[in-house]
Structure formats: structure tokens, C-alpha cells
Design a protein around this nucleic acid. Structure first.
Lengths: 118, 118
DNA sequence: TGGATATCCGCACAGATTTACAGATATCGT
DNA sequence: ACGATATCTGTAAATCTGTGCGGATATCCA
């Protein structure tokens, strides 16, 4: 049934949640960031760039054993999210983690979680 | 173009990435976890449960101002991922964060990132 | 037992995301 | 200038996701 119930079962808890939970706006931003990271290839690219400093699309594809298309699309999204920056030298475009890649995301979260979920 | 290039531009970096980057399997597990969290409503539910200890679907819907259907679906996914546990008392089902909810995800990552992205 | 309550389940539709492909741009070597 | 290289852009098809609805299940109260 889709009816909303009128009477909370635990009014105190409802009130507490109402005040303490981040707004839909704040969580939408965070969700946006997380969904960019929520992809195996994009994660591997982030780890790879963290290790090597910088790589071009072709080398990335080679190292991770995926098509250049796939690597290119992944980089497109990472750049759009401001997580990866580029430097062009001749016809090759080098990619690196953006200087303002969220510190806690990379070091606490990703490096820690990869162990936990293993 | 979909052609793979033969010759890496930086063979050393490619080799380094190859050895240091987590496997597709490991990153797939991590990506799975992150995609469960990559949703505004599910994030708000996690924050709410962290604050209040436990809440039933109806109260959650009330507190977060969403339909019971939406809250129910979000909880379904959180449970399937093992992030939320339930306790049934009569006809009401109380939801709480699973005892093995990844610690770093909740405290370092989510709480920190909500500030950064703000 | 019968009616109301709290929640769950499955299905179908709309919207977002991903992939693969073809064409465009820019640069290099000769 | 010409052909090859490295990458980007745009787009259409395939796939994944979230929502809302109708209906099922289980429990409570009278």
C-alpha cells in the first residue's frame, strides 16, 4: 500500500533523524561523487594514476587491459567530475589525479575498503 | 578510433600500474559497495540509522519525507548489501546499521566527504 | 474471525547510464 | 603536404535503476 501512516511509531527517533540527517541537497552532491567512483574501471584508473603520477589514455588501456574506448569514456567522466586533470604534450594527453581529489576518499576510504571487501 | 596502440608511450609506468593496481575482481566488489551508497536517499537512511540506532520503514519515510515505497526499496538494497540488519517486533520491522557496516566508510569517508562536497 | 495496520514482493514504465562505432581534430615524421 | 598516430566528440542501441502500483503476507485488536 502507498498510504503514508499518520502516527510515527517512535516520534522521538523521527524528530531526531529529522534534525540530524544531512539535507537532500548535501547528500545528492555526495551521491554524485560516489557514483563516479562506483565503477570498477574508474576505480582502477584512480589507483593507477595514484601510483604512476600520470598516464595517457592508450597506456592506461594497455595497463588495465581494456579498450581505448572504455578507458576514454571512464576518463571523460572522471574529468567531468573534476577528479582528473590533463596535460597535453604534442599529441599525447597525460592524465593525473586532480590536485583537489578528495583526500579522505582516496586514502581512508578506497585504500581501506579494498582490504575490507577483499 | 578503436585500434589499440602497440607501443606504450611510457612502458615503465604501464608496468608499474599493472602490478600495483587492484584486480578487476577486487575493484568490482568495492564498486558494488560504493554504488549502494551512491544514492541520496540511501545515504540519508544510513545517516538516520547511525543517529537513531533503529527505525521502522514508516518512520523513516516520515522523517526523510519520502514515500514508504521509496524507503522500502532503498532498505531492500541496503539489506541485500549486508549494510542494514532488521529486527521484527510484532508487525513492525526495525532497521539498524549492520554490526559489520564498514567503519571507514561511515566515519572517515561519509562524514568527512559531506563536509568537503558542501 | 474480520478489519485495520506495517511491511514486503513483483511487475511495468520512465529516465539515466554504458557501450560501441563513425567521424572530427590536432600533431608528428618524411 | 601527406599519411599515420593519439585522442576527442557525438550519437544510437543496449543495459541498468528507481518509482509507483496492485496485490500478498503477517500481526494486532476487538
Amino acid at each position: 500500500m502507498t498510504l503514508e501512516h499518520e502516527h510515527p511509531i517512535d516520534a522521538r527517533a523521527v524528530a531526531q533523524a529529522r534534525t540530524a540527517v544531512p539535507s537532500a541537497d548535501e547528500t545528492a552532491r555526495l551521491a554524485g561523487l560516489l557514483s563516479v567512483m562506483a565503477d570498477p574501471l574508474r576505480l582502477r584508473i584512480v589507483f593507477a594514476l595514484d601510483e604512476t603520477d600520470e598516464l595517457c589514455v592508450g597506456d592506461l588501456a594497455l595497463a588495465l587491459d581494456v579498450s581505448e574506448d572504455a578507458a576514454g569514456y571512464a576518463l571523460r567522466l572522471l574529468r567531468a567530475a573534476g577528479l582528473v586533470a590533463t596535460r597535453k604534450e604534442g599529441r599525447v594527453v597525460y592524465n593525473r589525479l586532480s590536485p583537489d581529489f578528495p583526500e579522505p576518499l582516496l586514502h581512508y576510504c578506497l585504500r581501506e575498503l579494498i582490504k575490507i571487501t577483499a
